[in-house]
């Protein structure tokens, strides 16, 4: 996923004054990465679109408080991740974890499947597990940051990551055999 996330300071300054055109500019710049993050974490597209909307309403509301510390995308992403995780908590749609605690090490490692297989395997993870995998492995959040955002412990985040990878490995092995 390579998307340009560069946003001019002028655009940000205009957005801070409440200029709707500038705010739309920010929306256009971050629409896809925000939606992608939400969609990777949440089970369905509608929820991800809701997160996209809620995130930008929050951006519009709080852009005045953005001090310019760090990349704007980091700030927007933090809002989006929080909204997505809140949705998971609020709706309590976490599927019962059926993870295999073991890695299955001892048998040959399966080939890692093609994109479609990985996409499908991701969808078989619980929302919490998928959120941890995506935020840790793709977005680069630390376990400490994930734990804080989820209101859980660091060991919870670590354990979710391990269980989710074990599950992915198993699912991809099935795909490869099929």
């Amino acid at each position: 996923m390579t998307i340009s996330l560069a946003v001019s300071d002028v655009l940000v300054a205009r957005a801070k004054t409440g200029d709707l055109e500038a705010l739309e500019g920010l929306y256009r710049a971050f629409e896809t990465p925000v939606y992608n993050l939400a969609r990777r974490i949440l089970k369905n597209a509608e929820d991800a679109e809701d997160v996209l909307q809620e995130t930008f309403l929050e951006v519009v509301k709080s852009i005045g408080a953005y001090r310019g510390d760090g990349h704007l995308w980091g700030w927007v992403r933090q809002i989006a991740a929080s909204k997505a995780l809140m949705k998971i908590r609020r709706e309590n749609v976490r599927a019962a974890d059926e993870f295999d605690e073991t890695t299955g090490a001892g048998s040959p490692a399966p080939l890692v499947g093609v994109n479609l297989d990985l996409e499908r395997a991701l969808e078989h993870l619980s929302e919490t597990g998928r959120a941890v995998v995506w935020m840790h492995d793709v977005e680069g959040y630390t376990h400490e940051e994930i734990a804080e955002m989820m209101g859980k412990t660091v060991s919870f985040s670590k354990s979710q990551l391990a269980r989710s990878h074990a599950r992915l490995r198993k699912l991809l092995a099935v795909e490869a055999e099929a």
Binding site: Y27, R28, E31, L57, N115, L118, V138
Partner: peptide, 24 residues
């Protein structure tokens, strides 16, 4: 697996939500 996760194509929303955001 992690490298492939990072390489997954970005997903885009099916519809433009800006009009709703702007309206709100």
């Amino acid at each position: 697996r992690v490298a492939q996760l990072k390489a997954l194509p970005a997903r885009s929303p099916a519809r433009d939500r800006w009009a709703e955001i702007r309206g709100t």
